[in-house]
């Protein structure tokens, strides 16, 4: 019982941090700040994976791939574009915001309604290690795995083609 309460407290605490950082991504004007906020969001998510969802391997991959590669990559691009704070002219308080907010809230309520009806129990901590995942990944999902590698390769080639000076 005590463990449950502890879990709930952790969940609420991490959830709040996640939501705050997510809002930061959306509402911070400077893209660099947004990217840093996303970094925080991903970091907290990784913590939640370890703390609540007993998935240390995915958490590590999240840190390495998402935070270490993707977001840093995005930051590089932002730096490359050399955007000065003075250039940023975006305004949030527009009719578009309220319309979009309404749509998103409706959607959120729908989705919450859906997840509220999910049945299932709380399975006590049982860590999923890299080996367990590897077994699945290299047997049942081997083909998919290879296809994803092809996809990444193609994406790399595409990125090179797109970013070349002469288009």
């Amino acid at each position: 019982m005590g463990a449950d309460v502890l879990h709930i407290i952790i969940a609420v605490f991490l959830g709040l941090l996640i939501l705050v950082s997510a809002l930061g991504v959306v509402f911070l004007k400077n893209p660099v700040h947004s990217a840093l906020s996303l970094l925080a969001n991903l970091c907290i998510t990784a913590i939640m994976y370890v703390a609540l969802l007993s998935a240390p391997f995915v958490a590590i991959v999240q840190v390495i791939v998402y935070m270490g590669a993707v977001v840093v990559f995005v930051l590089f691009v932002i730096m490359l574009m050399d955007i000065r704070p003075a250039d940023i002219t975006e305004r949030f308080l527009t009719p578009r915001l309220f319309l979009s907010l309404a749509a998103v809230v409706v959607f959120a309520l729908q989705m919450l309604f859906v997840v509220a009806t999910v049945k299932g129990g709380w399975i006590p901590t049982k860590y999923v290690h890299a080996g367990d995942l590897a077994k699945l990944l290299f047997t049942k999902y081997a083909l998919l795995f290879e296809l994803v590698s092809v996809l990444i390769f193609a994406a790399a080639a595409g990125a090179v083609a797109l970013a070349k000076k002469r288009m």
Binding site: D4, H7, I8, A11, V12, L14, G15, I18, L19, A22, L23, V25, V26, N41, M48, L52, L53, S100, L101, V104, V105, F107, A108, M111, L112, V115, A116, V118, G120, W122
Partner: peptide
């Protein structure tokens, strides 16, 4: 309870992203 909380966090994160 924990399960519901995590689901809610996921959904809301998704929706904030969509809003963005």
């Amino acid at each position: 309870m924990v399960m519901g909380l995590i689901f809610a966090i996921g959904v809301i994160t998704f929706c904030i992203g969509a809003l963005g």
